[in-house]
Design a protein around this nucleic acid. Structure first.
Length: 473
RNA sequence: GGUGGAUUGGCCGAGAGGCGAGGCAGCGGCCUGCAAAGCCGUCCACACCGGUUCGAAUCCGGUAUCCACCUCCA
């Protein structure tokens, strides 16, 4: 049994072989906490949550590091634009929004979540190493601008197959960066500017300043996972320049770095990538108001991770119908067999997950299990139906979609008490409805059902009697 | 211009040189007092033009359209 994953760097499916048997070191580019999380951030985080869960399910000890970039041009810019909030306050406020959104979707916390600002010494050390090895240079008289010397690194461009870099407007690029030797050179360290807060700068031997964009990921990945590790993940839009530069500076520092580069597809709204300038951003908060979190999670996982995922107006409603089909089956099984325990996933499911995490195919296996499970119950084969339910639960566990798992359990004791009180009342009314039905008094029985419906309670008759559920739960 | 990717049935979305993924929506049937849920059936698709092949939606060549990155982006 092997797991195959698509490696962006070699542009092919590769068998996953961990550096250390049974262990996986995985670095995922987290957000720059400059503004609120949107649907794309959630999808990306979910992709690596799926991978982490699957690897764990297959017996690997996974160390997942996902960074928080809390010092960056945009963070300073957005804080300055708002004018009333310190940059570090903005960053932390946004970080908490991200954490909340991830939690809502039951994206498991990473093993560790380093902040860039907490790893400044590691970045300084890396820049120093690159200068020492002749792959970085400080701009004389700039009081701290340091650039990566791409001309000194012949492999530059290896990640994205960029052999010749055409830079048509040199003057524009040089505008904010006088002294750069090559337009491709990128900032490792940015000299402190008088208009920027003193708190956003750190002392170094080449001048006071702050880190450039890419250096934080190289430093944090290496700090926590070592100079070589198994998997590096991130959004497709980060491939260039971010990951290209990250790879260049790490490799030039003498590190083997990531063995496998994974890139997840983006979310499109109306065939286009979501972006602020188009005004089609869909924020996590809006998404979570539009549907139950578990339905959002189902939706975001419904396309292959490398495909672009289309968000369209009825997408969540469709996901809701599809997911509730599964939930209805589980509820049916629970009525027959009591609380259910997870069994084992099917071979079809396992093969799909091993094949570059083909979750759409895995979902097909899940739906097949649900359909045949329903058919077994219909045929009176409760034992068979329950087996299918346990199998379905195992698959749902892997996908983080098991509604009975502790991670999705309601934690409020008040909720449980309310539920019990409601159940007592509903059960009593259902008894009188059953009596009316026995008397063929369908006017009364339908009125009771309609009353429930208008209260958001759905009543369904089965051979074993009526049962109720709350709509949308 | 450079580098990648895509084009599948009403919609979403997999897969793949011959054996109809899956979901949603629709339609028909079974079940039901009526519903709901469920099951069965139905809707037999793969941009276009050539080529290879016994056979192509799947491989090759070309065309068209679209998307992403090359500036900050998950």
């Amino acid at each position: 049994m092997t797991i195959r994953l698509y490696d962006s760097k070699s542009a092919q499916l590769r068998e996953f072989v961990p550096l250390v048997a049974g262990q996986v070191g995985m670095y995922v580019c987290g957000p720059t906490v400059q503004s609120s999380p949107h649907i794309g951030h959630l999808r990306s985080a979910l992709v690596y949550d799926h991978l982490r869960r699957w690897l764990t399910h297959e017996g690997f000890a996974v160390t997942l590091v996902r960074n928080v970039t809390d010092i960056d041009d945009k963070v300073l810019e957005n804080a300055r634009a708002a004018g009333v909030e310190q940059w570090w306050a903005l960053a932390y406020r946004m970080e908490r929004e991200f954490t909340d959104a991830y939690s809502a979707l039951r994206i498991q916390p990473p093993t560790y979540e380093p902040r860039a600002t907490a790893c400044i010494p590691d970045m300084i050390e890396l820049v120093r190493l690159l200068m020492k090895r002749g792959h970085a240079y400080a701009i004389p008289g700039s009081n701290g601008n340091v650039y990566f010397d791409t001309a000194s690194w012949s492999s530059y461009g290896e990640l994205t197959n960029q052999t010749v870099m055409v830079m048509p407007q040199i003057e524009q690029l040089d505008d904010g960066a006088p002294g750069k030797r090559d337009p491709r050179d990128f900032a490792l360290w940015k000299a402190h500017k008088p208009e920027e807060p003193e708190s956003a700068s750190w002392d170094t031997s080449w001048g006071r300043g702050r880190p450039g964009w890419h250096i934080e990921c190289s430093a944090m990945a290496t700090k926590y996972l070592g100079t070589t590790f198994d998997i590096h993940g991130g959004g497709l839009d980060l491939r260039f320049p971010h990951h290209e530069n990250e790879l260049a500076q790490s490799a030039a520092a003498g590190h083997d770095f990531a063995q496998l580069w994974l890139h997840n597809g983006l979310v499109a709204v109306g065939d286009q990538k979501m972006s602020k300038s188009l005004g089609n951003s869909l924020y996590a908060a809006q998404l979570l108001e539009s549907a139950r979190a578990i339905v959002v999670r189902y939706f975001l996982g419904s396309a292959h991770y490398r495909s672009q995922l289309e968000f369209h107006p009825t997408a969540l409603a469709e996901a809701k119908s599809a997911f509730e089909r599964i939930e209805t089956f589980l509820a049916r099984a629970a009525r027959v067999g009591g609380p259910l325990k997870s069994g084992k996933v099917t071979n079809e499911f396992r093969d799909a997950m091993n094949d570059d995490m083909s979750i759409p195919t895995a979902l097909a296996a899940l739906h097949d299990t649900v359909r045949s499970g329903n058919a077994l119950f219909d045929a009176g084969n409760d034992k068979g139906g329950l087996t299918n339910a346990r199998t379905a639960l195992a698959m749902l566990d892997v996908l983080g979609l098991n509604p009975y798992a502790p991670e999705w359990a309601g934690t409020s004791s008040e909720g449980a008490a309310t539920r019990a009180a409601l159940d007592s009342l509903v059960t009593r009314l259902l008894a009188s409805r059953a009596h009316a039905r026995e008397q063929k008094d369908f006017v009364t029985s339908d009125r009771i059902r309609d009353d429930f419906a208008s209260a958001g309670i759905i009543v369904e008759d089965t051979p074993q009697g009526a049962h109720w559920s709350i709509d949308g739960e």
